[in-house]
């Protein structure tokens, strides 16, 4: 039963993948920055649909919401008051380095992808003694959370989430300090 539903999804999945690849190529090749940003948004929405196919609604929600906000940031805060067209050619050295890196990752990926289970089946179901089997078996009883993802990221692996929150906090502090226009004394007073 499980196998059949996965098979039914495969053509849609491949169409989505093709759409994302085309959007990526356009985003890299176009000279207009606005259309490049819109293509990046299309890739993000494709990725969130793909997470839905992989039965991960948590990630799909986060992906789609962050994508919307990221598009707004990119369009409103950078493009509307900046140069919207790219002038000049690419550096030759940079192109060579990126092609070599992508080739190495691709060749390593071919080796790694052979060891993965087929698409749509979970890794922990195939591996004996995987830690995630414990989460699925005992998660509801130990943490009481019906959403197992929440029980993993905020109970079993909460230390990881604390690290993420720290990274976000630090980056916000850095951005606020670098990008502010007025000094701190002026910032706390009302506008003159």
């Amino acid at each position: 039963m499980m196998e059949r539903t996965v098979r039914m999804e495969m053509p849609i999945f491949y169409a989505l993948l093709l759409f994302m690849i085309i959007a990526t190529i356009i985003a890299v090749e176009t000279k207009n920055l606005l259309s490049s940003v819109i293509c990046i948004g299309a890739i993000g929405f494709g990725a969130s649909l793909m997470f839905l196919f992989l039965r991960a609604p948590d990630i799909a929600i986060t992906q789609i919401v962050v994508e919307v906000l990221g598009l707004v940031i990119l369009i409103r805060a950078t493009i509307s008051r900046d140069r919207t067209f790219i002038t000049g050619d690419r550096e030759f050295f940079g192109v060579v380095v990126s092609v070599v890196v992508v080739l190495v990752i691709f060749l390593a990926g071919i080796k790694v992808l052979e060891t993965l289970p087929p698409f749509g089946t979970a890794v922990f179901a195939e591996t004996a003694g995987a830690a995630s089997q414990t989460y699925v078996r005992e998660g509801l009883e130990k943490t009481g959370a019906a959403n197992l993802v929440a029980s993993v990221i905020l109970d079993y692996r909460a230390y990881d989430t604390l690290g993420e929150a720290t990274v976000l906090f630090t980056s916000i502090i850095g951005a606020t300090v670098i990008l502010r226009r007025k000094s701190r004394k002026l910032l706390e007073e009302p506008d003159i």
Binding site: A77, T143, S151, L168, F169, R181
Partner: peptide, 29 residues
């Protein structure tokens, strides 16, 4: 679920405020 909703509220407050902050700062710049 004990502390999980509390952590959710804390993270929601933090992420919401910080993302609003970054857009505000970027549009001021």
């Amino acid at each position: 679920a004990g502390t999980i909703p509390l952590s959710n509220i804390a993270i929601g407050l933090k992420v919401g405020a910080s993302l609003f902050l970054i857009i505000l700062v970027l549009s001021m710049f």
